[in-house]
């Protein structure tokens, strides 16, 4: 009985959050005001974080909140606040080509995801790290990250350092 209630609750939360994330991400691209877009982006990221929680990945969920919803969107908001939004609203810039190209790319991406989900089943064989093990222990995530996936991890670090140095050089150039 109790287990049944749990499953039903999980489904309800999943459906609610999935719907919310889709709705919020739709609102992200349709809002005129970029700050509102950024806020809906936060909502999207938070609802995706709840989906991670349903998959027993506490660590990923909370990192999603700290890094994306907290830090990155904060930087986006910071930059937007420095811009004069009313100029953008008044200019009535017509964007036709980018809409077509963007729409085409979006549909392509959708098909890519559909192919990945439908044709190639995403569930592989069960490894040593079951959801329960990863969910109750952040150490497990760290172990996998620094042994099995060390190379991709290092590559990402190098990319990030390159991006930081690039940003510093670009900003120093002007003065």
């Amino acid at each position: 009985m109790a287990e049944n209630i749990g499953t039903i609750f999980q489904w309800l939360i999943f459906l609610g959050m999935a719907f919310l994330s889709v709705l919020a991400s739709f609102l992200v691209i349709t809002r005129k005001n970029p700050i509102h877009s950024a806020l809906f982006l936060v909502l999207t990221l938070l609802s995706v974080a709840v989906l991670y929680l349903l998959l027993y990945s506490q660590f990923i969920a909370i990192i999603q909140v700290v890094v994306y919803a907290g830090a990155i969107v904060m930087l986006i908001v910071f930059v937007i606040m420095l811009l004069d939004l009313e100029v953008e609203l008044r200019s009535k810039l017509k964007i036709v080509y980018s809409k077509v190209i963007g729409g085409f790319l979006a549909i392509l991406f959708l098909f890519g995801i559909l192919y990945a989900v439908v044709a190639k089943s995403p569930t592989g064989k069960v490894g040593p790290y079951t959801p329960d093990k990863v969910s109750t222990n952040v150490k497990a995530v760290g172990e996998v990250l620094f042994t099995q996936y060390l190379f991709p991890f290092e590559i990402i670090s190098i990319l990030l350092v390159a991006a930081i140095i690039g940003a510093v050089i670009l900003s120093k150039k002007r003065t």
Partner: peptide
């Protein structure tokens, strides 16, 4: 008593900053 308690604090605190930033804006 969650496994990522410390990170939770940092996560929620960074969300709280939106209040101040958006309030001023």
């Amino acid at each position: 008593d969650i496994d990522v308690g410390l990170l939770y604090i940092f996560g929620v605190a960074s969300l709280g900053e939106f209040g101040i930033v958006l309030g001023g804006w």
